[in-house]
Amino acid sequence: MNKNLMITLIVFGTLLILVTLFWIYKKKMPIKYSLFWFFAAIVIILVGTAPSFVSIFTKSIGFETTSNFIIGIIMAVLLLITMLLTIIIAELKRRITILMQEVSILKSQHNSK
């Protein structure tokens, strides 16, 4: 793997850790959800420091170069996250609907008294 890509990956991984720490510090991200991002950052840094580890998988899966393999993996993970978010949003929408209905009924009963 190209040296520049290695450096980019290490820098990107470190930035990801810093950004995650920032959101935790601002109390915007619960620790529970930050664990995934720390894990992702550590994997990215590991790939940057020891690319030979990754290149073992690259050819066997069918990618021509290690960099393509890395991009492929990142895309797969992002797709999975987006899918999970769709499910989470649908569930939140369902709960908000129930909340709205119950509060609206209570409010109308309260007003008519």
Partner: peptide
């Protein structure tokens, strides 16, 4: 007119279900 004001627009399904809850 007896009514329930939904706090936000829930769409036809959410509105009708509110009526069933009532």
């Amino acid at each position: 007119i007896p009514h329930v004001n939904l706090l936000t627009n829930l769409g036809i399904g959410g509105a009708v279900q509110t009526g069933y809850k009532y």
